[in-house]
Design a binder for these strands. Structure first.
Length: 279
DNA sequence: ATTAATGTTCAGAA
DNA sequence: TTTCTGAACATTAA
């Protein structure tokens, strides 16, 4: 589930213990699970990272990027259940990779933990990275959007607005959970054709996206019922307590009180909304 | 005991 | 060209 707020929380959590520190070892954790997708291979990744310093830690859409002193970057894609941890892994069996750092501070390792194992780790040269995640592959970050950019990008497709919000080429960082929450606060029917969105609706969408994502970062993301998502210290997020529609099927609408939240399926994913006040 | 669902991405088909 | 479908995997709920 890690979407923009969760990945931003991971980046902020590990940055103080990773930035400007030298990597002394990269280790594959013992596990009974199938191996993760690591490119080019685990041993090449370990060789390319060991001895390097981390020059920066940043978020690229829903990915965590560690920039290294040798002009290469590690791209961590948590997908469904991946976590970047400084301590307190939920269990040992799903720990995948450990990076150890030089010196003695409060935390001296970072782990990648992934229960489902759909996450990926990739090491790129700077030039490859720029190409792989350039503007043709990844849209502008959701937090960087302006109203004009929303208008330009949404008007260019005829898909349902909920489906368009999940398109990382259109806008980077929004996933299934926050798409429903954003559209609810904006009062927009998730099935609405993007080309039929009015100017006031797009203005509301722009405001709502900004507000929801910023508040979710402040609350350190959403930890759902299965408790998978955790911050770098393995503590739960708090934004799930603010959810208005996501996973609240049959509950009354917090906006209009008249409607009941319903669940529909779009692009094979659940969408939650209030049919009374989202139109 | 099967089957469906759960967050994401991408290749390949329509 | 754009949009849709299914698969990658582990775990839980019905």
């Amino acid at each position: 589930m890690p979407e923009l707020p969760e990945v931003e929380t991971m980046v902020r959590g590990i940055r103080p213990f990773v930035q400007d520190r030298r990597i002394t070892a990269v280790l594959e954790c013992p596990t009974h699970c199938r191996p993760l997708s690591i490119q080019p291979t685990f041993s090449r990744l370990a060789k390319g990272m060991t001895g390097q310093s981390v020059t920066g830690v940043r978020r690229l859409g829903k990915r965590v990027v560690l920039d290294l002193s040798n002009e290469s970057s590690l791209v961590v894609e948590p997908r469904m259940t991946g976590l970047m941890l400084l301590a307190n892994a939920p269990d040992l069996d799903h720990l995948r990779v450990e990076w150890q750092f030089e010196g003695e501070q409060e935390f001296n390792s970072v782990w990648f933990w992934d229960r489902r194992g759909l996450g990926t780790l990739r090491l790129f040269k700077s030039a490859e990275l720029a190409e792989k995640f350039g503007p043709t592959k990844l849209g502008p970050d959701a937090l960087e959007f302006t109203r004009d950019l929303w208008i330009e990008r949404l008007r260019a497709t005829s898909r349902a607005v909920k489906v368009a919000l999940l398109d990382q080429k259109l806008v980077a960082g929004i996933g299934n959970l926050y798409a429903s929450e954003i559209l609810h606060i904006a009062g927009i029917d998730p099935r609405r054709n993007c080309q039929k969105l009015t100017k006031p609706q797009i203005d509301r969408l722009a405001d709502s996206a900004q507000a929801v994502l910023e508040k979710a970062i402040e609350y350190e993301g959403s930890t759902l019922g299965d408790g998978t998502y955790r911050n770098a210290l393995s503590q739960s997020g708090r934004y799930q307590n603010e959810h208005r529609v996501y996973m609240r099927e049959d509950q009354s609408c917090p906006t209009c009180q008249r409607g009941t939240v319903i669940r529909i399926v779009q692009a094979q994913r659940s969408t939650f909304y209030c049919p009374k006040c989202q139109c």
